[in-house]
Design a protein around this nucleic acid. Sequence first.
DNA 1: TTTAAATTTCAGTCTTTCCTGAAATCACGG
DNA 2: CCGTGATTTCAGGAAAGACTGAAATTTAAA
Lengths: 173, 173
Amino acid sequence: MKLTPTVQRCILHWGEMASRWGVSRSVAQIHALLFLAPQPLTADEIAESLSVARSNVSVSLKELQSWDLVSVTHVLGDRRDYFQARKDIWEVLAMIMDGRKKREIDPTVQTLRECVAEGKRDHETPEEVKERIASMLEFIEEVSGWYEQIRSMPRPTLLKLMRMGTKVAKVIG
Amino acid sequence: MKLTPTVQRCILHWGEMASRWGVSRSVAQIHALLFLAPQPLTADEIAESLSVARSNVSVSLKELQSWDLVSVTHVLGDRRDYFQARKDIWEVLAMIMDGRKKREIDPTVQTLRECVAEGKRDHETPEEVKERIASMLEFIEEVSGWYEQIRSMPRPTLLKLMRMGTKVAKVIG
DNA sequence: TTTAAATTTCAGTCTTTCCTGAAATCACGG
DNA sequence: CCGTGATTTCAGGAAAGACTGAAATTTAAA
């Protein structure tokens, strides 16, 4: 399947951004392709469109599925898997944030908790340093908690809030 | 300068997280070290504490300075540069977000705008795809705009808002 | 079953990024 | 303006990560 120059450009840019965020280029490009694609695609179509190895597509799709960004569908009378991406951008963002929280933030909170606990019986680390570690933990926990709350809000409410911008500040006085 | 096990653990964990976010391990470790350090450190002290090459420290410090996370100070009668990191975690987060917005989000908006413009005279890309690109652009612009607003709020207001959590929703009814 | 298509695994290779150490440059006191 | 110590630059090496292609496995139709 041949990509139009406009689509190519989006996919290429997406791939470049990805590497800056610790995501492999293939994964990002495949995600971009599926996000833009009007219909679900087979792994072979993806491999051909992006000129990457079929096996790479397989691994990358597994990765995208683990992030809940891509799912599999089937076509009657066709054994091949067809892949489609979430199309709702808000959902996409939520999936990515949930994933990063689970994979990076939560383990960091865990480690910091252990460091703080360790600090209790550690007499070589200066108090000031221990306090900074503790306040870092507190900070991450606070932001995490806020994220959970935001996450639980119905989308229209969140949108309304966002669109109020700084005006919410006036309401809460 | 010898690091205590607790401090080492924090620095090591920070370094590991960094690579998942597209930041080099050295940069992250140096940042962690300076963030925890009670006093400013010289480049040599940093190199020794973390067992990395002096030149690596130099480059990494430049990187951290470009993010406005680290600054230079001097000690009377000492020619060497002393480095210190921002200690206010909220400020640290703000610097990182500002930096990523400037380096990744803004160029992405630029590219998407060009893609949308290109789409006007492009007749091979399906309408549906063009629309998805346009809505992606709109989405990023909306979130960016919201970020700018939040960014302009005084910290106490932001904190109050955050701590209200889902309760703000009730206020705006 | 058997067979063939579809998919996945994985060892090896390639790329990219990071880091080092030597040399160059800079900065300041004498 | 020379010399010493501090800092930076940069070419090359090392490490990490990504990608490929062949072989193995799975799947389902015949």
